[in-house]
Write a protein that binds this DNA or RNA. Sequence first.
DNA 1: ATGTCACCTGGTAGGTGA
Length: 258
Amino acid sequence: MKLATWNVNSLSVRLPQVLDWLQAHRPDVLVLQETKQTDDTFPHAELLAAGWQAQSFGQRTYNGVALLSRVAAVDVVRNIPGLLDAQARVIAGTVQGVRVVGAYVPNGQEPGSEKFAYKMAWLEALEAWLREELARHPKLVLMGDYNIAPEDRDVHDPDAWRGKIHCTDEERGHFRELLDLGLADAFRLFEQPPKSWSWWDYRNLAFRRNQGLRIDHILVSAALRSSVTSCTIDKAPRKNERPSDHAPVMVELSAPVH
DNA sequence: ATGTCACCTGGTAGGTGA
């Protein structure tokens, strides 16, 4: 079973690339972030024609998430239950016996800002909900754009980024709390090339210089950990014309044990 | 390098968010 996450920075702009990528990799699940379009304009027909069903949770201009799967997702949840949130950031569903949570964690803008406080509160709520969700669904994958670089090795220039957004101790503390729920960072279950990033700023020729951060992650529950056979970042779409600033991250599971 | 991209409003540019 292949599952993937991709912040597409506008699905209406990136739909051709998403369709190409689906055809090339044929994942069972792909969660999208920053679709930036409302559900009434979501491209269900194009995706269905290619073989993927979609659950979308969009909004105008900002945010927006979707869950694409070859087998329809069931028990679909939009946003974090119990959290009053005007922003569309979470879509969850069960696909082929695996609970899939797709998340677009708030950016946070700058430590000390209101947006940073929102990010911290949002992560608290995510952790509380996931604790319950894991009890209900031991086989769980949490994937998306976390807007957190967990360690210095996930940052192209750790000294320059120290204490900056995505790299603060508070954000990294929240990432560790997610791991403490029993989740594992699938990417780090394997030896990986050094300087592996999932996001490169559009500015400063950052991609050409490989100046990026690893902020898109796939966390797997303890029940799934031993069935993970690979986890990779696919840089190829970042080389497209008009790319997203993020690359897809993909995980492969051997047939889930029932 | 405050260096780009996407989207909005409101208009042929400027603001916001990332």
